[in-house]
Simulated scan of single mutants.
Amino acid sequence: MRSIWMQERTREEIGEFAAAGGAIVVALAATEQHGPHLPVNTDTRIAGHIAEEAVRAASASVPVLLAPVLPIGCSEHHLSFGGTISLAPMTYFAVLRDIGESLVKDGFRKIIFVNGHGGNEPMMQQAANDLAVRHPIWTAAASYWSLARDSLQRIGASEVGPVPGHAGGFETSAVMALSPGLVRSDRIGDSHPERDWIFAGPPGAFVGRHGELTGCDGYTDAPVRASADKGRLYLDAIAEAVSGWLVRTVQAMERGEGRL
């Protein structure tokens, strides 16, 4: 089976794939503090796993490749805690725009962003919009938790805390499943101050307060109920949901090819 990763193909193979109408997925992540117990590559580890599993499954139904995961995101609200590398919002927008422009020059006419860090979402949506305005191409963009919201509700993922939260029960479960040796179990507390306003309003709403955009001490909830088994369950559900969205999206783009 040929690799789903763009970087493992030659320039000719990539050009032929793009010319034949293949889609390219760009996974967006971050390198940022995740409390005292999780590694700073938590978002990259989770987003990369989800993207790889989703694209591999989707590739059985539609032509799709996975670009290298972008491990640096828009994380300025984490810088005060240390252990963070961030791009300013407009810099991040320019990076995404340049990635898209490069892929257009590579011949791709279907570019899909899949996001794994909340701070990236506004610039991702704007970059996808601008690319579709500037070029006769299809674009799409979504965060994995939005795509998998219904699936995660059905399996009761909120039992461990807010989904996805930040460095709480949900993300800790995922890292326990993927890389248990990187979780500092000795630093997991059994309580955490409540910050209900962080998750106030419907999905997509934003409520922020200076100095507390990431919750108390840089994480949103106590991960005491986290487990590797739960993490595997959540990750499988997310990958399946994202894969289904990719298939539906690429098929819709294919049906509309004549309109570009």
Rank of each mutant, 00 (worst) to 15 (best):
Q153P: 00
R225T: 01
P203T: 03
D98W: 00
L65D: 06
P122T: 05
Q125T: 01
A88L: 13
I112W: 08
L38K: 07
M124K: 03
A140P: 01
Y144V: 02
H166Y: 11
E32A: 15
G119C: 09
A20I: 01
A200N: 12
I85C: 10
A27W: 00
L233G: 00
H192P: 09
E16T: 14
S146M: 11
G15S: 14
V62E: 03
A252G: 12
A157T: 06
E13H: 07
T84M: 08
V69P: 01
G215W: 09
R97I: 00
V133G: 00
A228F: 11
L38F: 07
R134I: 04
T84E: 06
A29P: 05
V55E: 03
I155P: 05
G244C: 02
A51H: 06
A167H: 05
T220D: 14
G156A: 08
I238W: 02
R154G: 00
P193V: 07
G231S: 08
A128R: 09
A58M: 08
A148F: 10
T220R: 03
D221S: 15
T84P: 09
G83P: 01
P162E: 12
P164L: 06
H166Q: 11
V242M: 06
L235V: 09
I238G: 03
Y92M: 06
S143V: 04
S158V: 10
G107S: 06
F199I: 04
D130E: 15
T31F: 13
A27E: 04
A58Y: 08
I111C: 05
R45C: 05
F108A: 04
H166V: 09
T44V: 01
R225H: 14
V114C: 04
T214A: 15
R97W: 11
I155G: 05
A252M: 09
P202G: 07
G204W: 10
V95P: 00
L213M: 14
Q125L: 15
F17H: 12
V40S: 15
V64L: 06
K105G: 03
V160I: 12
A94T: 11
T172G: 05
T172Q: 03
M176C: 03
L233W: 00
E159Y: 01
E52D: 07
A141D: 10
T249W: 07
R195A: 14
G35Q: 03
E171C: 07
T214K: 02
P71F: 09
R97L: 13
S80H: 15
R109T: 14
A47T: 15
F113E: 04
A174E: 14
D236C: 00
Y234M: 13
S185D: 01
V25P: 07
G22K: 11
V25H: 07
T42P: 05
R9Y: 02
L213E: 15
V62G: 03
I198A: 12
I85S: 10
C216M: 01
H192E: 08
E52S: 13
H78V: 02
